[in-house]
C-alpha cells in the first residue's frame, strides 16, 4: 500500500470526505509525527505503536570509494515499536 492508496481508501470509508480533504489529513498525520520526532518527542498511538528517537553515537567511518577515514557525527534515528494489537495481528503468517 502506498500513501495515495491510503488516501483513496480513507476517502471511500469517510463518506463526508472528499479526496482532497483525505489527502490533506493523511499528509497532516505524517507531518505531525515527523515534527514531533524532529523535536525529540515520543509519539504514542494506542493499538498501533509508538515512535521514539534513538541516538547513534559518533563513529569513524570510511569512504568506500577512496578508503579515506571520515568521522561520522552523532545522529538521531527514529525507532518504531508496534503496539500490542498490531504485533499480535501480524504474528501468524497464514496467508
Amino acid at each position: 500500500m502506498t500513501k495515495s492508496e491510503l488516501i483513496s481508501i480513507l476517502a471511500s470509508t469517510q463518506p463526508s470526505m472528499t479526496k482532497l480533504e483525505s489527502e490533506a489529513v493523511v499528509n497532516a498525520v505524517f507531518d505531525a509525527i515527523s515534527e514531533a520526532l524532529a523535536k525529540g518527542e515520543h509519539v504514542e498511538l494506542r493499538g498501533f505503536g509508538s515512535f521514539t528517537t534513538r541516538t547513534r553515537q559518533s563513529r569513524v567511518g570510511r569512504n568506500p570509494k577512496t578508503g579515506d577515514t571520515v568521522s561520522v557525527g552523532e545522529k538521531k534515528v527514529p525507532y518504531f515499536k508496534p503496539g500490542k494489537l498490531l504485533r499480535e495481528g501480524v504474528l501468524s503468517r497464514d496467508d
Binding site: M1, T13, Q14, M17, V25, I33, F48, L85, V90
Partner: peptide, 28 residues
C-alpha cells in the same frame, strides 16, 4: 472529525499489515 479520521487512518494501516501487505509512505 479529526479524532475520527486519525483512528480511521491507523485502522486502515493496521488491517493492511495484518493482511500481509507492506506500507510505503513517501517522505516518511
Amino acid at each position: 472529525d479529526a479524532v475520527t479520521t486519525v483512528d480511521a487512518v491507523l485502522d486502515i494501516m493496521r488491517s493492511t499489515m495484518i493482511k500481509g501487505e507492506h506500507i510505503k509512505i513517501s517522505g516518511f
